[in-house]
């Protein structure tokens, strides 16, 4: 360490710092190479969650008993937007406002980005219903906006749902990332959760048609 950081460090060396902060434990560590905390006991997992299953639950079963509980439906008119668009995180894309570095864009599968178009996952049944072909361009529209995408016909997605990877459609950064694909954020909208009054966003009604 040097400079301002070094001056701000109150000890002469990291070893001196460890010696002072760890106290007796440091001496034991130096002597034995390890230190055992005899007071430690494992958490009592059986009592950790006060749910019916005593395990972590995304939505506790008790919530169904609440009179005000209603599943939140995605925003949009079902008759005009027959499908539901959901986002998903690809392991090879930085999904926040931070851009993916060129290494990641290059390592991205051709089933997520092809040319400058993002691919959306569509079940074969859905694709057949709307006359969409694998790899072809399509227009994705939601109550919030429109985007040109490509179709990736994939068995792993539920019929009636289309999935789009998060982390594309940047306008910032360099030519290796900017203006590639479409952003889910530009297509999505929030609804109010009637139970909590908070904004919720998980999906949006959408339409996918031939471009």
């Amino acid at each position: 360490m040097g400079g301002a950081v070094g001056n701000a460090f109150a000890w002469d060396s990291y070893e001196a710092c460890l010696g002072q902060t760890l106290g007796d434990r440091w001496d034991v560590l130096v002597e034995q190479g390890f230190w055992e905390n005899t007071d430690f006991s494992q958490g009592r997992w059986a009592d950790a969650f006060e749910t019916d299953s005593s395990k972590f639950e995304f939505a506790g079963s008790q919530i169904n008993a609440l009179p005000a509980y209603n599943p939140v439906s995605p925003p949009g008119d079902e008759s005009f937007y027959p499908l539901v668009l959901v986002p998903y995180d690809s392991m090879r894309l930085a999904s926040g406002y931070i851009g993916s570095p060129p290494f990641l864009i290059k390592a991205l599968e051709a089933t997520i980005l092809k040319g400058n178009d993002v691919l959306v996952e569509v079940n074969p049944a859905t694709a057949a219903k709307y006359g969409l072909k694998d790899g072809r361009q399509a227009t994705l529209s939601t109550p919030r906006g429109k985007a040109v995408v490509k179709v990736h016909v994939f068995d792993g997605i539920m019929p009636g749902v289309i999935a789009i990877a998060r982390g594309l459609g940047h306008t910032a950064y360099d030519k290796f990332l900017a203006h590639k694909g479409a952003s889910y954020n530009a297509l999505s909208a929030v609804v109010e959760d009637p139970a909590t009054g908070l904004d919720a966003a998980w999906g949006i009604r959408a339409k996918l048609g031939k471009a």
Partner: peptide, 23 residues
């Protein structure tokens, strides 16, 4: 898990070049 770390490590290690459109 398909995370692609091996690809990235390989590209960095072996001077594999990029193209603007590498899809």
């Amino acid at each position: 898990t398909g995370c692609g770390t091996c690809m990235v490590a390989c590209m960095a290690e072996n001077n594999v070049p990029f193209r603007e459109d590498d899809t």
